[in-house]
Design a protein around this nucleic acid. Structure first.
Lengths: 203, 203
DNA sequence: GTCTATAGCGCGATAGAC
DNA sequence: GTCTATCGCGCTATAGAC
């Protein structure tokens, strides 16, 4: 425990390097040699600590997905927080996390495409969303609307996550620098809840 | 010309197969052997018609990106169409196209991450967006808002594209079947413009 | 635990017969 | 144009010295 925190163990160095290389290139394009080099050590150690490239990848991926769970844990089912404030908290937490890990959503979504259920099953979040108090609140707020309330859940996620997924395009097409992009994203922490509220009231 | 349309040439068969395999697996995970098999022919023919895997990929990718351009060509700069109607047309065209090619956005965005400018440069759409009449209209509509009007361009794209990017997750977490998903998406053809309008007016 | 060296194999690409 | 057979490389994984 204390020892690990002191010397940042070899195992942790490898994981750090793997996180970086996998996130940048995806599973198939990433090479174990890249990861070893990034970690400043030999290739053979990767297979000593983790049995294979695939096992290392799974560990990283699970941890990445957990970041999405952790960021809203404790918020979703807090029954004393009204919807608008809840959306504000969710946006704020997610955007802060995504500014630090901007490649995360695109990485997760593109790697999930190949085998969606293998990884999701292992997390046990299958019905999680629909059972949450948050989803009940959306339903309640959208009940005077004639459309499926799932749309508003999708829209909220879209406003929070999409800019990060599309950032390579935005930056290139719009000629936006990294710090401008970050500034724009931080502005959205307050705006998303306002926009969601407006959509819920729209007619 | 006429000949090609009649027999659906070998070259076209390969491109069709490549489109499918690349879109499903991404460049690195796709194998030329898969493409050849999918096209019902031998691996050697791939290199006879296209010099290499990379050249074949580039051709497919360019065509894919073109689909996004084609879907809004003629709309963006039509000065006689008011903003709300323009957003309706854009949503409608894009959603129709995306229902037919649901994997397209995730494919393009994840492959673009590696080399953003190499492919975009070849298309000459660099300043395209900001010069468009559509963008001027957004600016005009958002001028009483205190925030960067770029947000509203991002939001519109988010509402249209994000559900398709996140569909593997939505389907798994939300237990949504393919035809339910398609039905939901088609509903959005009319809704997006309404929502964008509401966000523009929000305070 | 960490290294070097290499096994073993799957990949993209090509030579050459038809 | 289309096939079979094969080259040669680069990858993951492992054996074995230290």
């Amino acid at each position: 425990m204390a020892k690990k925190e002191l010397d940042l163990s070899t195992e942790e160095k490898i994981k750090e390097a793997a996180r970086k290389v996998f996130t940048e290139k995806g599973f198939s394009a990433a090479r174990t040699r890249d990861i070893a080099e990034e970690a400043g050590m030999n290739l053979a150690l990767l297979n000593y600590y983790f049995r294979s490239k695939e096992r290392l990848f799974d560990i990283i991926m699970i941890e990445n997905i957990q970041k999405f769970v952790v960021a809203v844990k404790g918020i979703l089912n807090n029954e004393s927080v009204p919807l608008k404030m809840k959306v504000e908290q969710i946006s704020s937490n997610y955007i802060d996390m995504l500014v630090l890990n901007p490649d995360l959503p695109l990485f997760i979504l593109s790697e999930l495409r190949a085998n969606p259920e293998r990884l999701i099953d292992r997390l046990g979040v299958k019905g999680f969303l629909f059972k949450s108090h948050y989803f009940k609140q959306i339903k309640e707020a959208a009940k005077n609307q004639e459309v499926n309330s799932l749309h508003f859940f999708i829209n909220t996620m879209a406003l929070i996550v999409f800019p990060f997924v599309a950032s390579p395009l935005l930056k290139t097409i719009g000629d936006i620098k990294q710090d401008e992009f970050t500034k724009l994203m931080l502005e959205r922490k307050k705006l998303v809840a306002k926009w969601v509220e407006a959509m819920l009231k729209a007619k």
